[in-house]
Computed example of a mutant assay.
Amino acid sequence: MEGHLYEQLYNHILQEINKGQMKAGDRVSSEKELAERFGVSRITSKKALEKLAEAGVIKRIQGKGSFVADGVREGLDHKRQSEERPSLVFDEKERPLIGFIISNFSDEFGLQLLRSIEKQSAELNYDLIIKRSRGNRDEEKRAIQLLVSLGIKGLIVTPIHGEHYNAELLRLVLDKFPVVLVDRYLKGIPVCSVYTDNKKAAEDLTLHLIGRGHDKIAYLSPPEVNTSTLEERLLGYTLAFTQEGLKLNQDYCLTNLKGILPKNLGGTEIDNDKKAIEHFLEQYPDVKAFVASEFLVATLLTQVIHSLGKSLDEYDIVCFDSLNDYLGKPIFTHIQQDEKRMGKEAVDLLVSQLIGEAVPEQRIIEHRLVVKE
């Protein structure tokens, strides 16, 4: 049943009416009864009943339930449903639109998330429109305005890095437009968000290095201001030292690397980052362990180490969302985020809003620590 979701349930009820098993005025099973009977979610059964009501097949009476509409049997005579190949009787063009705005995506993070959101949207019979903001606030604003003008019913968005929230996004949230944030949240803003526990994840990475005997551990990251993901990762790094009773040296926190931000990729900022990392390595030669907030930061660090003629074997580098090498082994010990689950949950929570169900403000997705051999 879940393969076609509400279409099969929709068609099954039509067939019962068409065969005379249900007549005008007969009560149709409730959302809960249909969900239990066919082993589907309440979202699926509710959507099937809504579509039947929209098509005039049933009437939904507040507090009483759903009933077969008068004269519907005659209207269905020329639309006999094929039991071998169930199909929707409403126009395919009526499939509602939802939007997804992502700052950027790559093999290490974002691509699996995008695939998962597209797959789950299709399974729930929503058409998905995707826009990439490239980390640019104006592009994000234009994307929101464009998608709303195209008639999207709801929006999934990964907000860009930055000190200020996008006014267009805040306006949607305040207007109670269905929105789900993915991979981060907005502090103080009541909006449904799906993300990894980045504080715990960064703590796990740092404790891993401490467990390997390091007490001088640096942290490398883009500016964390007003980006929940990066703020939480920095906090997790610092909490690991407190937990182990170690002193944290604030000078070991290099958090102004801007070259890997989506809006700066391919620009001159990357050269400034390399110089900053090179200066750090020369200033603190005893620091041999690094927590990198992102995979690109870790790769940038290794490039600088190599350019200085140093051996990578001297260093312990951990990060988030590492790729594998040509043998299929992880390049770095890393936190692996569950992008597939994150994407599916984001779509499910958006659809729940669309059908009027209450949703939590936070949905935490489990991560796992993958240790390089």
Rank of each mutant, 00 (worst) to 15 (best):
H12C: 08
N226E: 12
E140C: 10
L235T: 09
D338H: 15
Q62K: 15
H12P: 01
L209C: 06
H161A: 11
A240G: 05
R95Y: 05
A167D: 05
S193T: 09
R363H: 13
K153P: 02
Q353Y: 12
D138Q: 12
E84C: 04
G25S: 14
N18M: 10
H164T: 08
K274S: 09
V72H: 02
M22I: 04
H161W: 10
Y326G: 00
T238A: 14
T44P: 05
Q336G: 02
R233D: 11
E36G: 15
G56A: 05
G71M: 06
E224P: 15
E278A: 15
S29T: 03
I364M: 10
K329A: 00
A298G: 11
D91G: 03
T333E: 01
R132G: 02
P222Q: 14
E294Q: 14
D91F: 01
N136I: 15
E50S: 11
T44R: 04
T44D: 03
H4S: 12
E373D: 05
D77M: 11
R42C: 01
D251I: 06
A276F: 02
L170S: 04
V351D: 13
D338M: 10
V194Q: 06
T196I: 15
A298S: 07
Q21P: 00
V304P: 10
E118T: 03
T158E: 14
L172M: 12
D251L: 07
I13D: 04
K79P: 01
V370S: 00
P86H: 01
D26C: 03
L261P: 03
I260R: 01
Y6L: 04
G39M: 04
K372L: 00
P222T: 13
L239T: 11
D316R: 15
L350I: 09
N272R: 14
D26S: 10
